[in-house]
């Protein structure tokens, strides 16, 4: 019961975030990069959360920043989960030497440290939201392939699939109509947890200043405030809002993930991304 309520609450929060991101131009009173006042003004009726060191409206930045952060988190999660699901099902279904080879390749790739590799690979493109989220999605899928492959492998050996094969169903059909639906719970949960993971990672990357500092997103907002003296000046309205926004969505995603996981199968184990 409580799980169900939690799930609903977190989905509601997620909807709220998405609504804000979609309706940003209508909600935000000013543009994200427009200079609309004196720098470092405390909150008042004109600037709900004050202004930053450039004189930009923090509330507007917060609203617009949701777009970048959400796009980043969900796109890379979608990409990563799609790749690992497709590859996992194919490997699990066909098995044999292809499976063996790919698994060995994955084994070899595993020791390469993901985080610095991610930074290295982003240098190949302009550091932009879309490019980094693609790189992140592809890299993140490596660990997911095994997760999907294992249940796909055991599913492929069930009499139910054997039966489908014997009546002449094509491989593609079996994979998409029979195996995939059975894996949907695990894929869904994986997607939600991956979104949370990537979203936080994206904000973190942006926080340590590894991409376009002109992009308005929560990570660069935190970075700006952190390096601009928000702590020593005690300017809570500068550093807290973007941080709390991240905490909020991260919590909602985490709770949604765990609740989903329990409602699908209390014994499921998908936390290892």
């Amino acid at each position: 019961m409580t799980r169900n309520i939690l799930l609903r609450v977190s989905v509601a929060i997620l909807f709220l975030y998405f609504a804000v991101a979609l309706l940003a131009p209508f909600i935000a009173p000013y543009g994200a990069t427009a200079i609309v006042g004196a720098p470092l003004q405390p909150p008042d009726s004109e600037h709900l959360l004050g202004t930053n060191n450039v004189g930009q409206d923090i509330f507007s930045q917060l609203v617009y920043g949701s777009q970048v952060t959400l796009i980043f988190g969900f796109c890379s999660a979608l990409l990563s989960v799609s790749i690992s699901t497709c590859a996992g099902i194919v490997l699990g279904y066909y098995g044999g030497s292809v499976d063996e080879v790919v698994c060995r390749v994955l084994d070899v790739l595993m020791p390469i440290p993901i985080f610095p590799l991610l930074i290295v690979l982003t240098t190949f493109f302009n550091p932009g939201v879309v490019q980094v989220s693609i790189v992140m999605g592809v890299l993140g899928s490596i660990h997911g392939i095994r997760l999907i492959r294992a249940p796909a492998l055991s599913l492929a050996e069930t009499p139910f699939i054997e039966g489908a094969k014997s009546i002449g169903a094509s491989d593609l059909r079996i994979m998409s109509r029979h195996i995939l639906p059975n894996l949907m719970p695990i894929v869904t949960v994986k997607f939600v947890t991956a979104s949370q993971h990537f979203l936080v990672m994206g904000v973190g990357l942006s926080f340590i200043g590894l991409w376009d500092t002109m992009t308005v997103d929560w990570g660069s907002m935190i970075q700006n405030a952190y390096s601009g003296g928000a702590l020593s000046l005690g300017l809570w309205w500068w550093i807290l809002p973007p941080g709390l926004a991240v905490v909020g969505i991260s919590l909602a995603l985490a709770l949604a993930g765990y609740s989903l996981e329990e409602s699908f199968n209390p014994r499921l184990e998908v936390n290892r991304i």
Partner: peptide
Amino acid sequence: IVFRAIPEFWWAI
């Protein structure tokens, strides 16, 4: 769950 959902750099700050 709640503890882990909060990003580590935010905890640190």
